[in-house]
Amino acid sequence: MTRLPITKTPKCYVGGAFIRSESGRVYAHNDSAGAFACNIPLCTRKDLRNAVETAAKAGPGWSKRSAYNRGQILYRIAEMLESRAGEMSAALALTGASPTTAAREVRASIDRAVHYAGWTDKYESLLGSVNPVSTPHFNFTVMEPMGVIGILAPEEAPLLGLLSMVLPAIASGNTAIALASHSQPYPSILLGEILAVSDLPGGVVNLLTGKRADILPTMATHAHLRAVYAAADKTERTEIQRGAAEHVKRTVFIHSETPCDWFEEKAQGPYQIRHFLEAKTTWHPIGA
């Protein structure tokens, strides 16, 4: 007797749960040979709004965890990705990556998670400071997370690009909502399943799929998002800046006109974490 194929319904990882778009819409995702692979949720601005609410709820708990514990959890993401490396490679190969390239991207993604896991309890001593002042005070600058960060992931490197943008945002205690690559969304669906079992509290990372044009304007103007981190072209950058100006939102861009090498050393490091930190300076009197 032939067994019926059991195919997976791809769902977005939002608030620790797997959701369909509130719109109920999907778009067909084809493999590199042009054959139908699966239907991917077409998220709307309302999905973004809901994700912002859930990310905001998760924020205080996540930022109050010790830096060491956040590091443990980021490392756990690497562990979980490692154990499903084969499946992830296959997901990347779906849209045409050769097995070697796919395996290389998965390896680099795992290393990137380990990289940021190491930084969680170290960036503070590098980026914060004890400032010399001429009065009898200790003067500290400490780094604090900003809040909810909106991310527009690049079209290429659907796993490594996405993770390289999400990890530095959450390493310091921010929460993030990322729109995955439109042309290669499946790795983000799989990444959601991996994050769900990585001890990462629900709502810290929220992954949406869909059209940029549906999400971008709302991501730019939504007052609750404190920063937007976007791989974007000239027109998109202008639109984001216009929207962000209203609520003085921080914008960090990766120019998508010029090819970005996500594998290189420059694509990671504490300065990526610094993009999404707010410096707080305090004056503390030295005992009389």
């Binding site: 709004r49 912002v52 905001a56 709302t218 103007t221 939504h222 007052a223 609750h224 929207g243 209203e246 609520h247």
Partner: peptide, 10 residues
Amino acid sequence: KTGAYQAPYS
């Protein structure tokens, strides 16, 4: 009124 989603802390 504004067309933009607002933050609760405003």
